[in-house]
Amino acid sequence: MKVLCCVSHVPDTTTRIQFTPDGAALDRTGVTFIINPYDDFVLARAAELKEKSPTTVQVTVLCVGKNGASSADSVDGNLRKALALGLDEAVRIDAEAKDAYYVARQIAAYAEGKNYDLIMFGKESIDYNGSQVPGMVAALLGLPFISYATSITIENGKAHLTREITGGKEVLECPLPLVLSAQKGLAEWRIPNVRGIMQAKTKPLHVLPPVEILPRVRTLKHEPPPPKGAFKKIELDQIDQLVEELANKGLI
């Protein structure tokens, strides 16, 4: 079985996000970049599948991105970390992720004709939160798409899945090949062991040129959230007034 895990290279979850003075881009100074946390669920699930059937499962991890100026902003570094979980090979499409459509077309162009049985993504990246790329790749490749998957098991070429829906979950079946986007639950996050880290150093990491695609959506500018003034401090004997105020604002 061939598995393709697609990951994003994003600012660490604890980063204080700041934009360049013109708002055009993220200020990358001093920012550490990590693999998108939702993509970590996908890598962990792939590692489980690989562990269970080491000879028959082949896992590729792919990222569309350019290495930044510092070692804290290295796509290749993050791909090596993914490989350290026991995955087989990494691919970096050497291009800036211009928009979701551009990224989806790059991934689809790479995957086309390679007969992946399972293509997995995190449900969204924590930078642009778009939830667009997985579905677009599925549509481009003509494969079924399961969004917000919280579990997948595979038996005889058929996948049994659950996905998160409003107020609960849905149980589904789908023949392979398929594309999914992962929500928390797909697998427990893993930390690579020393052996995995050593082995990852010599695993193949292919850097490929992008295909020529025009993006469709561009960012005009970013804005920081409006500064929040000091909160209104409520003393214990003012709770009645607080309730009154919340009610007057139509909140309760």
């Binding site: 980063t15 996000i17 924590i126 930078d127 642009y128 960012t219 005009l220 804005e223 920081p224 959230p225």
Partner: peptide, 11 residues
């Protein structure tokens, strides 16, 4: 965008 840490104008 940025998980509630910013806004983005798209075009």
């Amino acid at each position: 965008a940025y998980s509630n840490k910013g806004f983005e104008w798209v075009y």
